[in-house]
Amino acid sequence: MTDEMDTNTPEDSGLDRFQDTMDEFLAAADVRVVYGEPIEHDETMIIPTAEVLCGLGFGVGRGGATSSEHGQEKPSQGSGSGGGGGGRILSRPVAVVIVNSEGVRVEPVVDITKIALAGLTALGFMVGMMFRMSSRRHALPSVNE
């Protein structure tokens, strides 16, 4: 019989788990995440590529307190710890590498939805500025008044 004791506090094990998660997360920097598995079709090989953006954060904390109520011979003590975290991974296709008998070429992937949204935002900037300018001009008091 062995008398092994787990000396890790819950906070330490939590930190270890977060560290493991962080290590797994850092694997997102690998080349294989960006370049997908080659897809073969007839005599053409297609390799999809994507950009990957990921963020992760966590925090842990602990605290303790001692009660000093009247009538108690010995003050009672308490402590606690907790932690939390969150992360997000975003991926977007960028281009495809096409390999065939004619050679190797890179074809970009154009995301029409994102471009349309950016166009509307840009238009919104300009229209908003025009409205702001015209409303200021109308708000000016006339000389007669």
């Binding site: 962080m22 920097a29 950009e51 990921c54 954060g57 966590f58």
Partner: peptide, 17 residues
């Protein structure tokens, strides 16, 4: 990597073949 190693942001994108 943000201070304290408690947060990280990774942006991985294709460069060339």
């Amino acid at each position: 990597q943000f201070p304290g190693n408690h947060a990280v942001l990774i942006w991985n994108r294709p460069k060339a073949v």
